[in-house]
Design a protein around this nucleic acid. Sequence first.
DNA 1: ATTTTATGTTAGAAAACCTAACATTCCCTT
DNA 2: AAGGGAATGTTAGGTTTTCTAACATAAAAT
Lengths: 133, 133
Amino acid sequence: MDDKDRRSMPLFGIGIVMKLTELTARQIRYYEEHDLIHPERTSGNQRLFSFNDVDRLLEIKNYLDKGLNLAGIKLLLTGEQEEKEVPKSEKNEKSDMTDKELRTILRNEITEAGRFGKASLRQGELSRFFVKH
Amino acid sequence: MDDKDRRSMPLFGIGIVMKLTELTARQIRYYEEHDLIHPERTSGNQRLFSFNDVDRLLEIKNYLDKGLNLAGIKLLLTGEQEEKEVPKSEKNEKSDMTDKELRTILRNEITEAGRFGKASLRQGELSRFFVKH
DNA sequence: ATTTTATGTTAGAAAACCTAACATTCCCTT
DNA sequence: AAGGGAATGTTAGGTTTTCTAACATAAAAT
């Protein structure tokens, strides 16, 4: 079992995740509804979250605090995945460019926002505390 | 938050622990009833297990497979703790010696049993897979 | 032959979680 | 100022999971 498996292993109930992230159940479910996270389910349909999921939630929370909306966050987060996983040729070049631009703009906004005050909390990294890298 | 805190942080419901350890709920509760583990509880009295708890359960399972009974396992496990935490002077010297002897005997038995076949599975170390040491 | 140990099974209650619906607040835009 | 959308709160009713406690059983110890 490698690192990737460990981090994506479904382990936590929503109750614990609420405590770990300080998000409400409503928020967590809403983010799932909008495809920002995809926790596993038990045979009885209860959500089971992995380290990755919790990390993701912390990232979402972080971006929300900075004023981004879910659409933007979704772009950022799924953008990160795509860059690693999807070969360019697979995608529509035109809309891809637009996505890229958008992501760039968003990144700039974030960086800009980050300039003032609170020095980057380094959130969204629960697994750093628990999982060997 | 240091390592110790991380490993003793209550995180897992009994359902997940059952899967991680391949023990039944009955077994897990029985071991708790006999003071081999002491999981936390939610405000609603549901058990919440830490990495340490899961490690402990894996150790228990391991020792049981080797033919030890719970009394012996308890001595071994709490013995390990005492050696680290309790100053000698605090304890009754006489019964302490007996404990020590017992533990030695048990350890020998285990070592003996381990000699044949299956090369020490290195079980009881879940946190090794998840927690930085 | 009994008793003890470890585990299975069952029942009823409580806790946690689920979805769906409606309410509210805060922005944004017109 | 009014209307609309985004994000979250709240509530209701139902389902799943977990809880304790009791009784059952097989294997091991006495």
